Amino acid sequence: MESILNTINENSSFITIGLVVIILLLFIIVISLIRSVNKMEKKYRKMMRGVNNKNLEELINLKLEEIDKAVENSNEALNKCEVIKEEMKGCVNKIAIMRYKAFPDVGSDLSFSIAILDSYNDGVLITGIYSRQDSTTYAKPVDKGISRYELSEEESYVLNEAINKR
């Protein structure tokens, strides 16, 4: 034990200088940490002050209220879209047309059949027959994809074509 004490006494000046250097390094580290803390504190105070001297909590609450209003408006718009979607089913959204020669002595495809239907396959079939002497137009109602009148081959074709459209 005495040898350790003798070694310490002999090297006390070196030990003291070493401890002073360590203390100075620690003092420099403490000062740099204090500066960093001060910078962070300034940033924190600035952030908490917010915009136009409102604090951050008020701004967050204001934005949350705006988000709630936006969600409410979005849900309202989705509900209106569903109503419009249901109403659109009753509108014309399936159309098919076919031009053809009704008579071999007529030069061009001047006769036609057109099917105009809604999503429920309700609507009308319109057929125009053109000949050299006259032109005749027929309208036949369609209910759930079926006409109570007899259909020609061309009318059946356009009706099926219109029904199969999505």
Rank of each mutant, 00 (worst) to 15 (best):
C81A: 12
I8S: 01
K140N: 02
L59R: 14
G90Q: 10
S152Q: 06
A96W: 01
I129N: 04
D68F: 03
K144C: 07
V21T: 13
G123N: 04
N55H: 11
S156A: 07
N53Y: 08
E72I: 02
N52L: 09
I31R: 10
L78T: 09
K94C: 00
L56W: 07
L5V: 08
L125D: 01
A162T: 02
T136H: 12
L78H: 13
V30Q: 13
P104Y: 05
I28F: 14
Y44E: 05
S13K: 00
L117G: 01
C81L: 09
I15G: 03
V158W: 03
Y44R: 12
V158C: 02
V20S: 11
E65D: 08
R166A: 03
A96M: 03
D118Y: 03
D118C: 01
E57K: 13
I60W: 05
L33G: 09
I126A: 06
G90E: 14
I60H: 02
R132W: 10
V71M: 10
V21E: 12
S32C: 07
K94L: 01
E82P: 04
S111L: 03
V106H: 06
E82S: 11
P141M: 06
C91W: 08
I4M: 06
I31W: 09
L26M: 09
Y149G: 00
K80S: 08
V83L: 08
L159Y: 08
K89N: 15
K85H: 09
K43E: 02
A70K: 15
T16E: 11
E87L: 14
V51E: 10
V92E: 11
E87Q: 14
G123K: 02
S13M: 07
L110D: 10
D109L: 13
R35E: 00
T16Y: 04
S12F: 11
V20I: 11
E58C: 09
V92C: 09
E86F: 10
C91L: 12
I15W: 00
D143F: 15
V83C: 00
Y138F: 14
I163P: 05
L62P: 03
I34T: 13
N93K: 10
M47G: 00
Y157G: 01
N11T: 14
N9L: 12
M47Y: 10
L151V: 11
V37F: 02
I129C: 06
T137V: 15
K80V: 11
M88R: 07
S12H: 04
I23L: 12
L117R: 01
V158S: 05
S152C: 08
V142T: 01
I22W: 05
I31D: 04
V51Y: 14
V106Y: 14
T127A: 03
T127W: 01
T136E: 05
Q133N: 09
R99Y: 13
S36E: 04
E154F: 06
